[in-house]
Design a protein around this nucleic acid. Sequence first.
DNA 1: CGTCAGATTGATCTGTGTCAAACCCAGTGG
DNA 2: CCACTGGGTTTGACACAGATCAATCTGACG
Lengths: 232, 232
Amino acid sequence: MSTGTLPDIDLCCQKLKHTFTSLSSEELKSLLSLRNICYYPKGSLLYEEGTRTKGCYFVYSGIIKIYQTGHEGKEQIIKFDQEGDIFGYRSIIRHEPACTSAKTHTDSILYHIPDTLLMHLIKNSSNFAHDMIQIACKELGDSNRYIRDIAQKSVKERLAEILLLLAEDFGIEKDKTLKINITREELSNFIGTATETVIRLLSELKTENMVESKGRQIKLLNPEKLKTLAGL
Amino acid sequence: MSTGTLPDIDLCCQKLKHTFTSLSSEELKSLLSLRNICYYPKGSLLYEEGTRTKGCYFVYSGIIKIYQTGHEGKEQIIKFDQEGDIFGYRSIIRHEPACTSAKTHTDSILYHIPDTLLMHLIKNSSNFAHDMIQIACKELGDSNRYIRDIAQKSVKERLAEILLLLAEDFGIEKDKTLKINITREELSNFIGTATETVIRLLSELKTENMVESKGRQIKLLNPEKLKTLAGL
DNA sequence: CGTCAGATTGATCTGTGTCAAACCCAGTGG
DNA sequence: CCACTGGGTTTGACACAGATCAATCTGACG
């Protein structure tokens, strides 16, 4: 764990402000008084499905993979979180074991919020509670949309959709390459299909001039066409 | 709209207390001071995807179907709500158009909570906010679980799972018949498959002695066996 | 170089979707 | 009282998207 690269409180404060828009400076201070900022290298397991956690995380930097393990150990990716997102709060709030696992998908810097503090803030700051409700409801909307899509769209349509989603969430380089780096296997675990199928469909999309790829670099050549394909 | 059968305030209060466990009597009163209790016959459309609503609902009695319309108008059922549940709050909280539609699945009595009151309570009562967070997080957990299942399980496994879910949520008669009345088409819209497939699989389950059915009456003869099949 | 994870391609199998026809049953109106 | 109708259910035949298994290839890295 390298501490040299960790951000100072002020920077972290900036980002928190962005996420918890209705929090007063007072409340921000109470959050930041503990300095639970940590660096986690890529691939670190943060918590695991079925276990009880003692807090949740605010992402200062990096990308986090949230997933569930289903049928014979196959992982189902629920979402990727990044700078400004919080995750792991659900099980704390519900006083239940976690129903997902979380792992750093890139090197990350996370701010840890202890369960007691989280619950205290919810109970005592209606601003904080309000922000948390917003966050939970946003996720809920995303989930519902995703249920419909996974149930009704073809794998190819979902592939197009996920590619656009990743572009939207994590951005693309000037040359249209997705900024997030993801294996075919993870792509298939996100979409809910077999790895080989993703590969085949990806190469179909190549011949149809919508994407281009070498290795893990995926370029979205024609987002508009992808959008129509995805049914958006 | 029949008013004769409407419950009095006290009864409604009982049920509200059950849902909003941390609400003070004061707060309950403010909720109940408006008497927006209405009867809706089976099949009434309460709100529709894409529109803005002016409030959410608390279910006094009856069953409500929450769904989305996907691909070429096929409906995807997200959940059924019943006595004690609230629905329609997501879009209010997010200040967004609804992302689902809601329709009464049986004759129902609903208590309407105007958007302004909902937001007022969230902003000013940390108890209420706390309860709402609980509710949203519960839904979120259900959705995530469902994403994994729909992505990874076979249709037959999901059918078994949904049957058990319906039994759990709505109960069964002494003779093991599901209390909720649901067409094969709705079953397929819930599971995310074709109606014919549901019918075929249902009759497989019959020959395997797990269920029995005539018309819309579905009996779960062997819940244990169903559980194993569903992978629970 | 050798190794190993990930990517690719091919061959084959099968679960589900789709289309079409028939059936069942409850309610309607002549 | 009995056709008639229409919504829901059932069954069959068929096609195809996508899973699975196996083999090969690639490229990064020690």
